[in-house]
Simulated assay, not measured.
Amino acid sequence: MSFNKAIQSGKEHRKPYCGAKAIARGCRNHGSCEWCEGNRTHKNDKRELAAEQELIDFEKM
């Protein structure tokens, strides 16, 4: 059953994309726009900064 037929017959339960996701494909999950990628990789960026700071502190000792 195609997507349009599923919507017409009421068998489709997925929510349509809203906001920026409806307009730009890059803003969807795992998207490539800078804003979304920055939000997604924030935890890793914090870890890298902490590791760099530990190296700097180690070199000072």
Rank of each mutant, 00 (worst) to 15 (best):
R28D: 04
G38N: 02
Q53C: 02
E37L: 14
K60E: 11
E54F: 07
C36R: 01
R28A: 01
K60A: 08
R47L: 13
R40W: 02
C36T: 11
Q8A: 14
G31P: 01
H30N: 05
C33R: 00
G10M: 02
P16C: 00
I7F: 04
R25N: 10
R28M: 01
W35I: 12
Q8F: 00
P16N: 09
E37S: 14
C27H: 05
I23R: 04
D45Y: 04
E34H: 11
A6G: 08
R14T: 03
G38T: 04
S32Y: 01
H42K: 15
E34K: 12
K46Q: 11
Y17I: 06
C36K: 01
E37M: 15
S9E: 13
L55K: 14
W35P: 07
I23L: 03
P16Y: 06
E59Q: 13
D57R: 05
R40K: 07
S9Y: 04
D57E: 09
S32K: 00
K15Q: 13
D45V: 10
L49V: 08
G10P: 07
F3S: 00
S9R: 12
W35K: 12
Q53D: 13
K5S: 14
S9H: 03
E52R: 10
P16I: 08
E12G: 07
T41V: 11
K46H: 06
Y17P: 07
R28V: 02
W35F: 07
A6M: 06
F58C: 09
A6S: 05
N4K: 06
K5L: 13
G31S: 00
Q8K: 15
S32N: 02
K60V: 10
H30Q: 01
A6C: 07
E48S: 05
G26V: 02
G10E: 11
